[in-house]
Write a protein that binds this DNA or RNA. Sequence first.
DNA 1: TCCCAGTACTTTGCATTACAAGGTATTATA
DNA 2: TATAATACCTTGTAATGCAAAGTACTGGGA
Lengths: 112, 112
Amino acid sequence: MNIERVKSQMRKGVLEYCILSIISKDEVYASDILQTLKDAKLIVVEGTLYPLLTRLKNDGLLNYRWEESTSGPPRKYYGLTEMGQKFLIEMDSTWQELVDAVSHTTSKTKKK
Amino acid sequence: MNIERVKSQMRKGVLEYCILSIISKDEVYASDILQTLKDAKLIVVEGTLYPLLTRLKNDGLLNYRWEESTSGPPRKYYGLTEMGQKFLIEMDSTWQELVDAVSHTTSKTKKK
DNA sequence: TCCCAGTACTTTGCATTACAAGGTATTATA
DNA sequence: TATAATACCTTGTAATGCAAAGTACTGGGA
């Protein structure tokens, strides 16, 4: 048991939420997402992100278009589907409820 | 993909944190913990909680003492070890950092 | 032309763990 | 003795983050 494992565990739950949110703001491709998450100190690696994007796409929350790049292979630019937008709104509340629940549970007041 | 699965995923990461926090406030046994979590709308079932308590105990964050009950089998009352207390403090920051990271990532402002 | 570096996307295998479901043990009551 | 209530424990499954390795496209230099 170490604090890194805990951090990783906590990240897990919010990854999809953050990724959908990032995509909702801008059409982006995988490396953009990695960079944005890294800027926010949410460390994620390729092996995590790609399968997750594929999953979200298969679930109908995302779609993408190929775009040629001048410096390498073509990129997949992702965007939210209508369903993805609705889902994101639900996730907003879900996250907020969790934050409230945690702050309730961890408040300093003793019960009893 | 459904919102329930997402909720469950988000819960995962904070369960240990919440449980340590609950135990830090009071010596409690499993049913107390379940009730407290339920009150905070963090749904957890026995099959989740017991293995988790055992894990935290094996990691040296918790200890317990048996106490006779007047209405059934004896109960395990859990308390935090010194190490558990230190760990809880680290988890406080970890959680706060995550909340900040998420709010940063999901803020409405477009980058670019 | 052939190789190499850089970029981007994909796949495989593993370890962790929440949960459902069922099991064991103790006590009180009928 | 049953039965019910309470409490703790175990097993099997599915999901999934991550490390590591693989595939594929582009452009520049020998």
